[in-house]
């Protein structure tokens, strides 16, 4: 895959002195879904805003498909659609008018057939003549997406797209994102919902305090940082872990009624067989067992904590 966005040495310090972005280097691959994860105030929106031309960078450069975002702003901005975090839209306009307006702003002549397709894809067609002020929050969010797609962009930025959206709409939205990706659109999204990044993204970047802590293929990330735990519920509670089991690094939990074994599920040897043999030899019986994998959320919280 080739790069569609290339960010080099990008930084932003606001007039107030707040350093929103320290030096950011990042490449976005063409056609991928890239999730930018980070707590509030980490710099996600500032990064997106710079690429879209809303915020001026303090230093560094960004190219989109080889074009510089400042020198060749017409070329880069024509390629980009932005769905902002806030539900800001022309409240007294109809859905049809506001989406058509967006298409025009981005330099495209009217194409009612295309706008109709976008509205139908987003289940907004029956609302096309409704004023935005009469729509629910979820519907307004869809309108913002329709506006961002109105000029047929090849890159779509979604800044916290599912904040305040119900489960059904969220699923619809991700379905749409998948369809867009399949049609070749590159998608960069920021989210608080780690589950979404886990479900949707190809690659994940974690940003905290204006710094990209890590950028990794999602599966690689899960594999690298994804520990698995085996919990054994014991027949008889233990006061302490027998010396013969010391090399397994077990942890006693739940008042001695559970033994927890942590292992790398992707490793060549998990050590489970060995552990079970040793347990049998030590005469420790168990009534149930359970395995669990650390989620991206745990990985994320761990990373952000470590960075503090």
């Amino acid at each position: 895959m080739s790069q569609i966005i290339s960010i080099k040495g990008l930084s932003k310090t606001y007039k107030s002195g707040f350093e929103a972005l320290k030096t950011i280097d990042l490449d976005i691959e063409k056609g991928e879904i890239f999730a930018l994860l980070g707590p509030n105030g980490a710099g996600k929106t500032t990064l997106i805003s710079i690429i879209c031309g809303i915020v001026t960078p303090s230093s560094g450069s960004v190219t989109v498909d080889g074009y510089d975002i400042i020198r060749d702003y017409r070329a880069t901005r024509s390629m980009i659609g932005l769905v902002p975090q806030e539900l800001t839209a022309e409240m007294f306009e109809t859905v049809w008018a506001t989406v058509s307006h967006s298409r025009g702003l981005f330099g495209k002549w009217p194409d009612p057939a295309y706008v109709e397709k976008v509205l139908k894809d987003l289940a907004l067609w029956d609302k096309k003549d409704s004023k935005l002020i009469t729509l629910s929050g979820g519907m307004k969010r869809r309108v913002l997406i329709a506006k961002a797609l109105a000029h047929e962009p090849s890159i779509l930025f979604l800044d916290e797209p599912t904040a305040g959206v119900d489960v059904e709409l969220r699923n619809d939205m991700w379905e749409l994102v998948r369809r867009l990706r399949n049609s070749g659109v590159t998608i960069i999204l920021t989210t608080h919902y780690i589950q979404e990044a886990e479900d949707m993204a190809d690659r994940i970047g974690v940003i905290n305090n204006g710094e990209l802590i890590l950028v990794e293929d999602k599966r690689e990330l899960m594999r690298k940082l994804g520990k698995k735990q085996l919990t054994l519920q014991l027949h008889d509670a233990l006061d302490a872990i027998p010396a013969s089991l010391a090399n397994h690094h077990l942890v006693l939990a739940n008042d001695g009624s559970e033994l927890v074994y942590t292992y790398d599920s992707q490793g060549p040897r998990t050590g489970i067989t060995h552990l079970l043999t040793d347990l049998a030899e030590a005469g420790i019986r168990f009534k149930d067992l359970d395995t669990s994998q650390s989620s991206l959320e745990e990985i994320f919280v761990g990373l952000v904590r470590r960075d503090r």
Partner: peptide, 14 residues
Amino acid sequence: FTGTIYEQLSAPLS
């Protein structure tokens, strides 16, 4: 005031 200016600023408009 409403914040919709983001669209004009991010559009390919001089």
